[in-house]
């Protein structure tokens, strides 16, 4: 039976590499949320001298392409410097897997995002961030692409749930087209605050609901 997945994808799905947690990780990240669908956690051990990734592990709550991408990304990143690992793209991960179905891009991109987020978190904590990019509406929009619209399982930007974004003196305001008493409102508010409050120049995140 022809499956939509390549043999390499199926192999990584069956036997994912580098699975699990690193308890004393130097950095970790969690992308996605259970309320919305897929979720990936990435854990890093980094050699402070060489800034090479000495160990990497991942955990996945997701479908086959999500698991396989998590697995391949750990293989691609292991032994690389943070600079090198940061540049790994979804395209590269997909090629290494012998191709992923395009409709599965949003499930698999989480692992790539997870790796980058873990590296960024390490860099921020170790004062390695060279240039501090100010938070702009565009930066906020980019971050919001990682927040899922749980009603349909696609991100809030793509599904046009975000009605307005403004950034003013350290306050980020996001307006969502969702009733405030919607079952997912609280979870989404938390998710958005999480994604934005860690930025160096953000003091306050305000999520408003209309509709």
């Amino acid at each position: 039976m022809p499956l939509p997945y390549s043999e390499i994808v199926m192999e990584h799905f069956r036997n994912p590499r580098n699975v699990g947690r690193i308890e004393d990780a130097d950095a970790k990240s969690i992308e996605g949320s259970p309320a919305c669908g897929d979720m990936v956690a990435v854990y890093l051990k980094v050699d402070p001298e060489t800034q090479r990734i000495t160990d990497i592990k991942f955990e996945s709550y997701g479908c086959a392409s999500n698991i396989a991408t998590g697995s391949i990304i750990t293989e691609l990143a292991k032994g690389k410097t943070l600079e090198e690992a940061k540049k790994i793209t979804w395209q590269q991960a997909s090629e290494a897997l012998g191709g992923l179905p395009p409709v599965k891009a949003h499930c698999s991109v989480l692992a790539v995002d997870g790796l980058r987020a873990a590296i960024e978190s390490y860099e921020e904590r170790h004062g390695l961030t060279r240039q501090r990019e100010p938070t702009t509406v565009e930066v906020v929009r980019k971050r919001l692409k990682h927040v899922m619209n749980p009603v349909v399982g696609l991100d809030v930007v793509r599904t046009k749930m975000v009605k307005d974004i403004s950034v003013e003196e350290g306050t980020v305001r996001v307006v969502l087209d969702l009733p405030a008493d919607h079952q997912f409102a609280a979870a989404m508010k938390e998710d958005i605050e999480d994604k934005l409050s860690s930025r160096w120049d953000v003091q306050q995140v305000v999520v408003e609901f209309v509709g």
């Binding site: 309320a35 669908g37 897929d38 009603v151 349909v152 399982g153 079952q183």
Partner: peptide, 23 residues
């Protein structure tokens, strides 16, 4: 009923319709 399985990539409208969540 997972969204990852459906052709529309939408979670089961039945599970959502009985007040279930995406999870």
């Amino acid at each position: 009923g997972s969204a990852c399985f459906s052709r529309s990539l939408e979670a089961s409208h039945v599970i959502m319709g009985i007040g279930g969540d995406h999870e």
